[in-house]
């Protein structure tokens, strides 16, 4: 699969999911279990993405500048920093640590 095909398929899937909402009667998804799963699904996916992005290189588990950057990001979020500040702050920490040979 080329990157272009992957992008188009992913865009198509996301649009179809949006559109399906406009065709679905509200009572179909009103169960408490369904709503609990759909609330927690983004939490699980985003948490896993953080873990993979910060602590793996290829298929190896690693601890490097990215782990420190994530810790800084969490501290900035705790301090209610803006999204851009969090992202740029974490990148800057990783860049500085790498420049210092970390």
């Amino acid at each position: 699969m080329t990157a272009t095909v992957a992008v188009l398929l992913a865009c198509g899937a996301c649009f179809v999911l949006k559109f399906v909402g406009y065709l679905t009667p509200a009572r179909w998804v009103s169960g408490p279990r369904t709503s609990r799963i759909t609330t927690l699904l983004p939490v699980a996916l985003l948490s896993a993405l953080i873990a993979v992005q910060a602590f793996t290189t290829g298929e190896r588990l690693v601890l490097d500048a990215r782990a420190v950057a994530v810790a800084v990001a969490l501290i900035l979020l705790r301090l209610r920093a803006n999204f851009i500040v969090v992202v740029v702050g974490a990148a800057a920490v990783a860049a500085v640590l790498r420049a210092l040979g970390g």
Binding site: V43, I50, R66, V86, V96
Partner: peptide
Amino acid sequence: RYGLDAAAAAAFCALLWPRLRSLD
């Protein structure tokens, strides 16, 4: 060199943060 790989992890943290509202 500019820590953009760490920036991606930080972006996911910022997306996750407001969703960590319950013990579940």
